[in-house]
Simulated scan of single mutants.
Amino acid sequence: MRPVLTPRALFIALGLALLLALWLSLALGPVSLPLADTLRAALRLLGLPLSGAGLEQAELILGQIRLPRTLLGLAVGAVLALSGVAMQGLFRNPLADPGLVGVSSGAALGAAIAIVGGTAFGGLPEAFAPYLLSLCAFAGGLGVTALVYRLGRRDGQTSVATMLLAGIALTALAGAAIGLFTYLADDATLRTLTFWNLGSLNGASYARLWPLLLVTAGVALWLPRRAKALNALLLGESEARHLGFAVERLKRELVFCTALGVGAAVAAAGMIGFIGLVVPHLVRLLVGPDHRVLLPASALAGASLLLFADLLARLALAPAELPIGIVTALIGAPFFLYLLLRGRA
């Protein structure tokens, strides 16, 4: 398949799209800010002694509400897209998704345990509730992924097909467990659990943000170092071994990296689907399958797409707010069907 764009043209386009998404995310909302006020308020946050009418209010809105929300969307979109590239490279299938190894369902189960369990035991202290929810979600995603990987191991080798089937089975099992917790929850807890499973960037805070930023930075720095190995894996496992790559170690690293990235993203923002599926495939259609370009381009595109989706979620039914998982599903599901029809043709 011949690339539509050169890497340079794609990176320029994605960079401009990300800058536009950042500005719109910071400027638009229930209280819209002019571009000049947004820039000056941002400079005030950096410590510059600027003054002007309304700047204190703009600085408060940016610093306490929109900046953490924008950074959260940036990190979640980037890490989900990078995890999607990793899974599609591991399964050698452009329609693979990070949820195939059970990390999303495991994280959702961990969050359900934290939400329903905290209510059952009289509620959690307010200072610890956000951290416990994130920790349980992350531990659930990592635990289910580790079990999937363990089931896929045999005689020192990892069967990708067995991992896929184990992921599907454990995803169904986690879904049943989440359904049980949903049945046991009271009205207030049920509402919290439902909205968390739909995904949202609302309520972003710096306390919830910094662990995700560290994980996103680690994934974004590590995965490009495995770009050549992922390119070799596209030829097949035997060919990659003949080229001198440690295929089994690469599989372990990809699974762990996906569990770490998606687990942290789900813990911070809830269930947000289709970013890990749509973004890598779309970028691959534009520039081809070379992971040296695909990985950084997918990170930029994933961050931009999630920020635009969050903007649509905020403004579509203002002053009410749509869960962002609904918006990404409305974007991703038709695109997925298009890919299926295109592949059949």
Rank of each mutant, 00 (worst) to 15 (best):
G156T: 00
L48G: 01
F11C: 06
D97Q: 04
G118I: 02
G54W: 07
L10W: 02
A265R: 04
L80I: 02
V219K: 01
L14E: 13
F91C: 04
M271K: 08
G102C: 04
P49V: 05
H291M: 12
A139F: 00
F181S: 03
A166W: 06
A320E: 11
E59S: 15
R153M: 14
W222M: 13
G270Y: 06
P125N: 11
L26K: 09
S298D: 12
V160C: 02
K251Q: 14
Y338H: 14
A36C: 00
L233K: 00
L18M: 05
G73R: 12
L322A: 03
N197Y: 00
T119D: 04
A329T: 14
K228V: 10
L306E: 10
L26E: 07
G77T: 05
F181Y: 13
F256V: 15
R66G: 05
T70Y: 02
A75E: 13
R344N: 07
L71Y: 12
Q64R: 15
A204F: 04
E126H: 08
L72T: 15
P211M: 03
P34F: 05
G29P: 07
A333K: 02
L300F: 15
I61V: 13
L209T: 06
A220S: 14
K251F: 09
G263E: 10
G84H: 06
T162Q: 09
F121T: 10
L322T: 01
V148N: 04
I272V: 15
G244K: 07
L285H: 11
A172I: 06
L294R: 10
D310S: 05
D155Q: 14
L133A: 05
S304G: 07
M87E: 06
D37G: 04
K251R: 15
I326Q: 05
L33H: 11
G54H: 09
I331Y: 06
T192G: 10
P98I: 07
R226C: 13
L295H: 03
A217M: 09
I275T: 06
L71T: 10
I61R: 01
V148I: 05
S25P: 05
L10K: 01
Q64P: 01
W23R: 00
R342Y: 12
G179L: 02
L180D: 01
I275D: 08
A36D: 15
E253N: 04
G175H: 00
L135H: 00
A185N: 10
A139E: 01
G276C: 03
G244Q: 11
I272H: 08
E253G: 11
A111D: 04
A137C: 01
L180K: 00
F121R: 00
S238A: 14
R241E: 15
P319R: 03
L260N: 02
L95D: 14
L209H: 09
P280L: 09
G203E: 10
D310V: 05
L235A: 15
L170W: 11
P68A: 13
L26I: 07
L312K: 03
L221R: 02
I178Q: 08
L337N: 10
R153C: 13
R40C: 01
D310M: 06
L24Y: 10
A96W: 09
S134L: 02
L339N: 14
H291R: 08
G15E: 12
V144D: 12
S304N: 05
